[in-house]
Write a protein that binds this DNA or RNA. Structure first.
Lengths: 317, 317
DNA sequence: TCCCGTCATGGGCAAATGTTCATCAGCTGC
DNA sequence: GCAGCTGATGAACATTTGCCCATGACGGGA
């Protein structure tokens, strides 16, 4: 067992070393093989392992003119405090590519501040992808608070709740919400929210200086539905009620108005923190989310956005 | 002029976009060429431009990354051909931890070579610890030669002379030096070195392709003193003469110059093999050795180093 | 003890990448 | 208007990389 762990730890060490030699040191795989005393094929495997394990992180440090233009236009059109547009890869089917990296960079910028801040974190695939790009750092002076419950309907941990990942990576004090994401009734929600610890966490969330949220759509394969937070019937009801998107489970229509009744009566998430006193940045891209994003921005459910070029163009069209 | 700026800005924009598609998007250069409507060669040039312009930032998220960075800095600063930095264990008081293992790995890499080589070996605690980590192997085609005598002042075998251990473990032909470490006089040294077998061994040592040495300090509890190779009086004289360290008994000052006279007149060790034609790797770590290590590297008494993170940081400070 | 599944290894090959070189467009100065 | 220079371009070639596969080592279980 110890042997096993040694081996796998060594393997990662080796992968890191190979990845460093390759990407930072600029060696060829042959050179790496020679330096590490292994075959070229093994070196290749280590290099590729260093990528697949996420040891190597690549970031682009240059604002592309067109993206800057789009960002500026979106800021003006929707009255945002912050907007970032990353290049699109027309061929890629990834729904987070680029936005995750840019989101991570923005989160890091906030965490690097020496003065203590409260950062609120939503949930979702995009946010999770962003968190995975975070650089490990030491931020014991910041507080990171989750806006959503971390219990899935089947009782397991909600997979896309990322508060623990964040806290682990940046060593900040974390405030999860030990709640279901959507309660079984309005009554239950009130009861849960009445618990002193939850109340305190909700209070903290409301004070967040900076918030990062994902935006979910409510079309076919809506994340809320796929992840089992709502039933097929509820999904159809919500669609019938005009719902186009959701943030932390809070469902809104094409004008960005929260849908009255339905699941919104039972969502146990904290309200989206104030956009008057703080910055709420949404991370979202993709044609199928465009309507949801536009709606959220119209009513200022978020006052910041990180998206990609083609989504930005769609929003402006 | 405006035109010029536009062009160069566009070019950087394109470079950024190409670099992004390549590194973040994972496209091939052919795909980038197609998407951007340029030839593959142009795409290649843009990608390479994005690197040379520093637009693309690669980061390695692994403790080992810091070590590799330090190693690179030390190589540059001291003009070394080889440098390896192992992670420090802040809690450990061992003076060889990590370095011994890394040294053993490096020795093994050399011994794995199919073409015959001459490996010279110094002496000391660190080196002994490294040898103990060696994997048994069959290397009858290599020669291992000792740089130092193996007779302690009291006539016993010098404890930290490791040539026999090496030879045993790797089954190489070994060439020990049946001499005292420090002769009783310069005359005696000349006489001893005049013996045909010794002369042959010294000649062999001078040709070493690869040499591993330890570095000793000359502060309190200097190994030379503790092991009885020099007297308390000699120790004080050496310190007064500015000595800060020694390699194989050859004492040098803070600039890495061999101290004239004193014990250096009587040291029976072979001279340190050529750093022009071969690689001389020093294994050393620890705050109390830092001055000695720095001195040795400044004058290129060694052109390779294996050390630990905190020592590396000290060397660069 | 032996069998079988798992996994690392290195050979071989196709794809991708990097480099060199001849060419050519566009600009500068005469 | 023209020679000369600079820098971009793509063809051709050399190198490097990614991947598949046969092989063999290792470990767990019958």
């Amino acid at each position: 067992m110890a042997q096993r762990q040694d081996n796998s730890a060594n393997r990662l060490d080796d992968a890191a070393r190979a990845g460093w030699l390759y990407y930072v040191g600029g060696n060829t795989q042959d050179e790496i093989a020679a330096k590490m005393g292994i075959s070229r094929q093994s070196a290749q495997r280590l290099v590729s392992l260093s990528i697949s394990e996420g040891l190597i992180k690549v970031r682009l440090d240059h604002p592309i003119g067109r993206c800057l233009d789009l960002a500026e236009q979106i800021k003006t059109r929707f009255g945002l405090s912050h907007c970032e547009v990353v290049p699109s890869d027309p061929g890629s089917t990834s729904s987070t590519i680029g936005v995750a990296e840019a989101g991570a960079a923005e989160i890091e910028r906030w965490l690097k501040r020496p003065d203590p801040i409260v950062m609120a974190i939503g949930t979702g695939r995009t946010l999770k992808a962003a968190i995975e790009q975070l650089q490990p750092m030491e931020c014991p002076h910041h507080k990171v608070v989750s806006l959503t419950g971390n219990i899935a309907p089947d009782g397991s941990a909600a997979f896309y709740n990322v508060i623990f990942n964040v806290a682990d990576t940046v060593k900040a004090r974390s405030f999860p919400m030990p709640l279901p994401v959507i309660a079984s009734s309005a009554r239950e929600r009130e009861m849960l929210h009445g618990q002193p610890m939850i109340t305190a966490t909700l209070h903290l969330a409301a004070q967040a200086h900076i918030t990062f949220v994902g935006i979910g759509h409510l079309g076919a394969n809506a994340p809320l539905l796929v992840d089992g937070f709502i039933t097929e019937a509820e999904h159809q009801e919500l669609q019938k009620a005009g719902a186009v998107g959701e943030i932390c489970g809070w469902v809104f229509d094409a004008e960005g108005r929260l849908v009255e009744g339905h699941t919104n009566n039972r969502v146990a998430s904290a309200p989206i923190p104030s956009r008057e006193n703080g910055l709420v940045i949404a991370l979202a891209m993709g044609a199928n989310k465009a309507a949801a994003i536009r709606a959220a921005l119209l009513r200022s459910l978020a006052n910041g956005l990180i998206t990609d070029e083609s989504t930005a163009a769609t929003l402006l069209a």
